[in-house]
């Protein structure tokens, strides 16, 4: 039973990280129908930036909690800046191009960003400093829940709640939903499309940055290639839940995380991805729009 709980917990933690990245995918997809392949790289870059600032601050002798807070906020700011720039540079000129063209520029960007980090920093794994302090109240269950894991669960939950509030109740969230529904009509009603798309990219990148910093301090090492795999997994999760659907992305991520964790625990870690993908394929056969995706009637 304890083993089961342990696996469930590790599945939930994986799922939360996937969810933070998958939200960026799903929001961007909902608005401009683009699979943003470079999104995983934002996650990787933010982890690197957090590492760099943390090392610098550490060298100046700041205590670990303050270092963690400053380094991660800087990482989030930079991730937002990168997301904003990428959209302006590579996706905006292609807004009226055929549907697959932005996909190619996204793939190109992903290659560029990976190699940029590899050249500017290093190609090997870099240890990420352990900055998360031990929480005293966790001591009794510390054998199954590490402080970093606790932090991941708490922060993810808070972020999800904030995001839901922003999307549901604020003016900008309303505008985002309007653009997702019908871009042309939103434009006619006086919504600044370019501004909304930029905001979406910025929010998505911030979420990815939070995920990047959290997982990097949990696992303890990063390299330039982590974004690619995480990106693909998160994209899978977003599709599983129904792409373009925000609660769906969270649900899909948690299902994916738990499947992987149970497959690793009970079968073999070699086939972890096979199980994850097989579940997705099976699910899509029976529900072609994903778990929470709405069935859209085709217009003639």
């Amino acid at each position: 039973m304890e083993y089961f709980l342990e696996l469930l917990l590790s599945g939930l933690i994986r799922g939360s990280i996937y969810a933070l990245i998958a939200l960026g995918y799903t929001m961007v997809y909902g608005i401009i129908e683009l699979i943003n392949f470079a999104h995983g790289e934002i996650y990787m870059i933010s982890a690197f930036i957090a590492l760099i600032f943390a090392s610098v601050l550490n060298a100046y002798g700041l205590n670990s909690l303050a270092t963690f807070a400053i380094a991660s906020s800087l990482a989030i700011v930079y991730a937002a800046a990168y997301g904003f720039t990428l959209e302006k540079l590579a996706y905006k000129p292609l807004r009226n191009a055929p549907r697959l063209s932005p996909l190619i520029s996204a793939i190109g960007l992903s290659i560029v960003l990976q190699n940029y980090v590899m050249l500017a920093q290093t190609s090997s794994f870099v240890p990420f400093p352990n900055l998360i302090p031990d929480f005293a109240f966790l001591n009794s269950i510390s054998h199954i829940l590490f402080p970093s894991e606790f932090l991941i669960l708490v922060i993810t939950t808070i972020v999800m709640i904030i995001l839901t509030i922003v999307i549901k109740y604020t003016k900008i969230g309303k505008a985002m939903r309007a653009v997702a529904q019908d871009r042309m009509m939103a434009m006619l009603l006086g919504i600044n499309i370019n501004y909304i798309i930029s905001v979406t990219f910025i929010i998505g990148s911030c979420l990815a940055a939070i995920g990047g910093v959290l997982i990097a301090s949990h696992i303890g090492q990063i390299n330039f290639f982590i974004g690619f795999i995480a990106g693909i997994k998160a994209f899978t999760a977003a599709v599983l839940g129904g792409i373009g659907n925000i609660p769906g992305a969270v649900l899909g991520s948690i299902i994916l995380g738990c499947t992987e964790s149970f497959a690793t625990g009970y079968v073999s870690s070699d086939y972890e991805d096979v199980f994850a993908f097989a579940i997705l394929v099976l699910l899509l056969i029976f529900r072609p729009e994903g778990i929470l995706g709405k069935k859209r009637d085709q217009k003639v």
Partner: peptide, 8 residues
């Protein structure tokens, strides 16, 4: 990098 940039 050159390869990815030329794709973009």
């Amino acid at each position: 990098i050159v390869f990815g940039l030329s794709m973009v």
